[in-house]
């Protein structure tokens, strides 16, 4: 894999960079923000290492609220405190809000159209592929480290949510303590 090559120098973003970074993420993010967040934050701007990104993402996943909104707040706070959180949040949400309001106005004007449905459907298929590649990038370090405990826990979560379609909330409530317990004991 070539895409995780570290950028030239680690950077410490200011308020403007946080706002623009998350704006860049938001306007490209068709069919899921996560692949774009990782691409910009880890691969392009080098604000976090791959491991730091996965750590931050995992905590955001367990906190209530939209994961990527939480991630923007966590990353903004880390570099620039509360103003940083507001800058990242505004960058992530501002333009998409304007876009959906324009789209809904347009949609109510022209009504449903098969050509639009086909276009969006094909874009959704590409977005799914992007999500698969991002999953692979997040999982890869755990395979490389031969961390079978993590891979087993991940496999259980994947089966429960992806295959059996059990409610995410309950899977998290059961699996998270199990995951922590697995590391707790083995680390002593």
């Amino acid at each position: 894999m070539t895409s995780d090559a570290a950028p030239a120098a680690p950077t410490n973003p200011g308020l403007g960079a946080l706002f623009v970074g998350f704006l860049t993420i938001s306007i490209q993010a068709f069919g899921g923000v996560l692949p774009w967040a990782r691409r910009v934050i880890v691969e392009r701007r080098g604000w976090l290492s791959p491991a730091e990104f996965t750590d931050m993402l995992s905590l955001c996943q367990f906190l209530p609220g939209p994961n990527m909104i939480n991630l923007a707040v966590a990353l903004g706070v880390r570099f620039r405190g509360i103003p940083g959180a507001i800058a990242a949040f505004a960058g992530l949400i501002g333009v998409p809000m304007v876009i959906v309001l324009l789209l809904v106005t347009l949609y109510e004007g022209i009504g449903p159209s098969p050509a639009v449905d086909d276009t969006l459907g094909a874009i959704a298929a590409a977005a799914a592929g992007l999500m698969i590649a991002t999953t692979a990038k997040i999982a890869e370090p755990f395979f490389r480290a031969r961390d079978w405990r993590a891979i087993l826990i991940a496999a259980i979560g994947f089966l429960a949510v992806g295959i059996f379609r059990w409610p995410l909330l309950w899977v998290l409530f059961v699996l998270a303590p199990l995951g922590v317990a697995a590391y707790w004991r083995w680390r002593r």
Binding site: G31, G32, A124, I132, A139, A150, A154, V161, A182
Partner: peptide, 27 residues
């Protein structure tokens, strides 16, 4: 460290499940 490692492992599974669900719906 244990909490972070355990939660990260679960996250991989959840993200993978999300990718599968999106792919099934789209394809």
């Amino acid at each position: 460290v244990a909490v972070q490692a355990g939660l990260s492992a679960v996250t991989i599974g959840i993200v993978a499940a999300g990718a599968l669900v999106i792919a099934i719906a789209a394809d």
